[in-house]
Simulated assay, not measured.
Amino acid sequence: MRRDVVDTLLFVPVRVSAPGGAFAAVRTARPGAGQERVGLAFTGEERLHAALGPTQPWIRLSRPALLGLLRPLGIADIRTDPLYVGPEMPSVDLLEDGPAPAGVRRHAQWLPDEVW
């Protein structure tokens, strides 16, 4: 992997303990029912909000830092820029967001993972 990709700060969705709370946990998802959990990361705030909604809180982390947080949970994979994360596909055209960054595969649907 190129060094500039590794050092880039990503937009990582989190859950906060309470409004204004200091504790945050990174969100994970499952690509399908019964599949292994993956970490989620986005290359832009607008992509994160398109996939998870405009009120989704986030933090900036590098890919190595995010992997460091996920490994103790047994998660070794991060999916970058999924188009949508939720129980059902929305009826809007998600591809209007523009092309995916070079070399990044975008996925159409993810099941949010409520297990932390």
Rank of each mutant, 00 (worst) to 15 (best):
R27Q: 14
L69K: 11
R106D: 03
V26F: 00
H49F: 09
T28N: 11
M1N: 05
P112R: 06
A22P: 08
T8S: 11
L95I: 02
R105L: 12
V115P: 02
L69I: 10
W116H: 10
S17W: 03
I78L: 02
A24S: 12
F23R: 13
I75G: 02
G86N: 07
E46N: 11
V12Q: 05
G32R: 14
M89D: 05
V85E: 02
R105A: 12
D7H: 08
V85R: 05
L95V: 07
L52A: 12
L66D: 05
R3D: 15
R15T: 15
I59P: 00
R27H: 01
T28M: 14
W110Q: 10
P31D: 07
A65F: 00
L95T: 12
G39Q: 06
P101F: 01
T8W: 05
V12H: 00
H107M: 10
R30E: 06
E114C: 08
G39P: 03
I59D: 00
L73V: 04
V115C: 09
L95M: 02
A33L: 04
G86D: 11
L48F: 02
L83E: 07
P57A: 06
A18I: 01
G98Q: 05
G44Q: 08
P87K: 13
L9C: 07
V6R: 14
T80N: 00
D113M: 05
M1H: 06
W110N: 00
Q109A: 11
P82L: 07
Q56R: 03
F42T: 10
G39Y: 05
